[in-house]
Every structure is written in C-alpha cells, then in structure tokens.
Amino acid sequence: MARVVVNVALKPEILDPQGRAVQGAFGRLGLTGVTDVRQGKQFVLTVDGEVTPAKLEEIKHIAETLLSNPVIEDFTVEVQA
C-alpha cells in the first residue's frame, strides 16, 4: 500500500477569491502579518501495491485531466512511502 498525494492550486497569477476571503477573516480575528492566502485542494490516493513509474504516469494524467483544470490550476504529485 502506498499513498500518492495530488495537490491542486490556482496558478499564482490567477485571482483566488476564496483565499482572499480567508485572509480577510484573519484580519478580523486579530491575526496580523499574513500578507497573502492561497487556497488549494488535496487528493490522497491510496494505491494497491507499489507505485511503479507507469502507475505514476497514469496518476499524473488523471491529475491533469480530472483533478485539475490546467487552464487555471497547477498540480503536484507526490508519492508517500
């Protein structure tokens, strides 16, 4: 059993209204010094057996076509032992 974590976030140049709303809440709750908040999402995939390079490629493909919108989002894929 291995775990593959896919992190998806809006590209840095894209406006993140949710992140901005969270940042606004920080100020109201008294947390100062936070200059920017970017919100993303994380997918944790539990994989049967070993994560072979072929399997990893498949996951990357899925990350690009299903889990993220490559027009406005970036993603990273990370294998956890």
Binding site: L10, K11, E13, I14, L15, D16, P17, A21, V71, I72
Partner: peptide
C-alpha cells in the same frame, strides 16, 4: 496559446 485566464469575483 493559453494566456492566463481572468477569474472573476462576483462579490467584489
């Protein structure tokens, strides 16, 4: 060409 797309914020 895929220039960065504008994202809107209707609440703003």
């Amino acid at each position: 060409k895929r220039p960065s797309v504008q994202v809107g914020d209707p609440f703003m």
